[in-house]
Design a protein around this nucleic acid. Structure first.
Lengths: 181, 181
DNA sequence: CGATATTAGTAGCGAGTCGCTATTATTGCA
DNA sequence: TGCAATAATAGCGACTCGCTACTAATATCG
């Protein structure tokens, strides 16, 4: 039934995204390219391969492959082939890429009047909804490293018990493909 | 800066939309077609022309023209030429169109556990954000007829003071292009 | 009244997404 | 060692999107 809360929430989300998309075009990026680049800027070094980007964006490897190539042509990402697995590639956002991201800021003005409390409330509501929707579809959560069951933190050292590696302090706040809770 | 509340909220919105989009493909609709159809199902008879759909979706007349033609080919909308202005066309969702919309329901399960209070809270937060974002860009609000300054309601009669027409009871809850508050 | 905007809808271009289905490397496993 | 699984990519057809025209109908105004 059109008009109920579900439909309304869905349409609100959609219109907000379309508005954001309109802004993204002005920054030499199309919405998919923006989304991929924004992910790469927040993802840790174990989570920047095409298939991981595809999964995060609920897209396919084929499409994302093209998107990343386009970003590469524009100089917004750098390609790094893996040493251990010669099939896989990792993409990192370049300085120019981060600049392009900043140009497409949309909700700065509309969110300016919000208190920190209101921001986290909204953020948490959306996070919960997304989490449930992802779970219903059997998708990975793509949570933050620090909030993972494999994350170990003692003294001033961080460590991932799953991948068996030491972690830099700055990596604790990044998105991880393997994150679980 | 990636990682702040703004960026995070934007990425959450984006991922929710992409998830919804993935669901829409399964209902013989692409995301744009779904969005246009969902709008037509909620818009009143003064608001169903291509240019109005385009404005609602932050798109262009050209693109929406194609989208509506595609929906027409699929039998999901009906075309009606205006009697008064022979340039304009109005599109209405057909019964088959409404069925297709229902097939693409996504947030049913994830939102099932929410209380009515939580639903309206989330809905209101998003509405406020959208409203501010639209205002910042100088766009129309596309609000609901009933909540308009031109809406008159006395006894059991509804009336629009702007368009100078009587309104059916069922129209009071529909989206209107002319809505202002 | 008639010339001149303005408006509504559409067509067509080029780039690119998206869901597909292969295809090619490379790696893991029995 | 052979065969399945995996990572990335290529290519197809339908489509969106931002453009720039373009047609037809309606408004405006000297």
């Amino acid at each position: 039934m059109p008009g109920d809360s579900q439909t309304e929430i869905r349409q609100l989300l959609d219109r907000l995204c379309r508005l954001a998309a309109a802004e993204e075009w002005t920054a030499d990026l199309n919405p998919s390219q923006y989304a991929a680049l924004a992910y790469l800027a927040r993802a840790n070094r174990f989570s920047r391969a095409p298939s991981q980007v595809a999964e995060y964006l609920s897209s396919t490897r084929g499409t994302i492959s093209q998107t990343l190539k386009a970003l590469h042509r524009k100089g917004y990402v750098a390609e790094t082939r893996s040493q251990t697995d010669r099939r896989s590639i990792s993409y990192d956002a370049t300085r120019a890429g981060l600049d392009a991201l900043r140009k497409a800021a949309l909700f700065e003005k509309p969110l300016a009047g919000y208190s920190q409390r209101e921001l986290t409330d909204l953020s948490d509501s959306l996070k919960l909804l997304l989490q449930r929707a992802l779970h219903a579809r059997g998708n990975r959560p793509f949570g933050i490293c620090r909030e993972c069951i494999h994350h170990r933190h003692r003294k001033d050292e961080r460590y991932c018990a799953l991948l068996d590696v030491r972690l830099e302090e700055s990596e604790a706040g990044e998105i991880c493909y393997e994150q679980a809770s």
